[in-house]
Design a protein around this nucleic acid. Structure first.
Lengths: 145, 145
DNA sequence: CAGCGTATGTCAGGATACTGACATGACGCA
DNA sequence: TGCGTCATGTCAGTATCCTGACATACGCTG
C-alpha cells in the first residue's frame, strides 16, 4: 500500500529541505560582507579547485544552467575576480581562470564558509560527519538514476 | 587556524545542497502530472495537517514570504483546491481550508512524494532513516541560533 | 566530402520568490 | 480614551533563475 507523507516532522524531505535552507540563509548572511552570493562563491570555489573550466562545465558543477552561469561570470569578470580567454583555443569553450583578486577573495570566502559548515556540524564528531556526508551523497545518487 | 572548504566532495555543505537539489528536481518531475509545484504541494500538505491556518502562518511553515504565499494561494483558490474565509473572524487573518478537490489531489500528491522519499532512502533501514532525519534537524537547529 | 549529432556561448522572454511599502485591525498601556 | 506596537493582507518593483531559441564549432559516419 502507498501511504502519504505523514507527520511533516518525521519526513526526510522536509528535514532535508529545512537543513538546506538554513545552510543557504547562513551562507548568504556570512558572505554578505564580501558582497558575494552563494552561487558566486560556489563558482569561485570550483574555479579555484579546477582552473580553466568553461562556463558550461562550471554551470554543471554549481548546479545552475549555462545561462545563469553566463550572467554570473559577467558580474565576476567585471569585478576583476576572474578572466576569460577572449578566443576559444578549441571548440567554443572559453577557459576561465581566477585573477589574483579572485584568489584573494576566495581565500576569505572559503574560510567563512568553512566556519559556517563547522557551526552546522558542531555536534558531530569526525566519524559522524563522514557518515552524514555519505548518506547525503547516497540520497542524491538514488534520485539520479 | 581557519582553513578553507577543501575538496568539494568532502564538503558537508556541497553534499547537502546536492541532495536537496536532487530531491527538489525529483519532486518537481513527480508532481508535474498533477500540475503542482513543490511550493504548492507543500502548502496543501501543511494545510491538510493543520486546517484553518492563515496565509502568514502557512508562509512560515513552508519557508516562503507572506507575499509569495499570497500569490500561491490565489492560484490554488482559483483551481478550487482551497477556500479562504471572505471576512476575518478576528484580526485580519483569513483562515484557509482545503476543499474536497484539494483533499483529493493532496492524497495523490502525498503518495507521490512519499514514493520519491522512499526511493531516496531506499538504501537505508528504518533506524538509519531516523538517525539521518535527526542529523538533518540538528544541522538546521545549529544554524538558527 | 556532406550530413548529422553534440556541446558551447549568447540573447530574449517568462516564472517565481524576494524586498519595500501601505492600509487595516487587534492588543497593551498610560 | 488615545497612542504605539505588532500582525496580517495586499500592491508594486526587482532580482534571480529557468526554458526556449539560435548560431557556431567540433567529431563521427556514411
Amino acid at each position: 500500500m502507498t501511504q502519504g507523507v505523514g507527520d511533516l516532522d518525521r519526513s526526510v524531505g522536509y528535514a532535508l529541505k529545512q537543513a538546506a535552507m538554513a545552510l543557504r540563509v547562513a551562507m548568504e548572511a556570512a558572505l554578505r560582507p564580501l558582497a558575494l552570493t552563494v552561487s558566486q562563491y560556489s563558482c569561485l570555489e570550483v574555479l579555484g579547485q579546477r582552473p580553466g573550466l568553461s562556463a558550461a562545465e562550471l554551470a554543471r558543477a554549481v548546479f545552475v544552467t549555462r545561462q545563469s552561469m553566463h550572467a554570473l561570470l559577467l558580474g565576476l569578470e567585471e569585478r576583476g575576480l576572474l578572466e576569460r580567454a577572449a578566443t576559444a583555443p578549441q571548440g567554443r569553450a572559453l577557459p576561465t581562470q581566477l585573477t589574483d583578486a579572485g584568489r584573494e577573495i576566495l581565500t576569505e570566502a572559503s574560510a567563512i564558509v568553512a566556519a559556517v559548515e563547522r557551526r552546522m556540524t558542531a555536534a558531530f564528531d569526525r566519524e559522524e560527519v563522514g557518515r552524514f556526508v555519505a548518506d547525503l551523497a547516497a540520497c542524491a545518487e538514488a534520485l539520479n538514476y
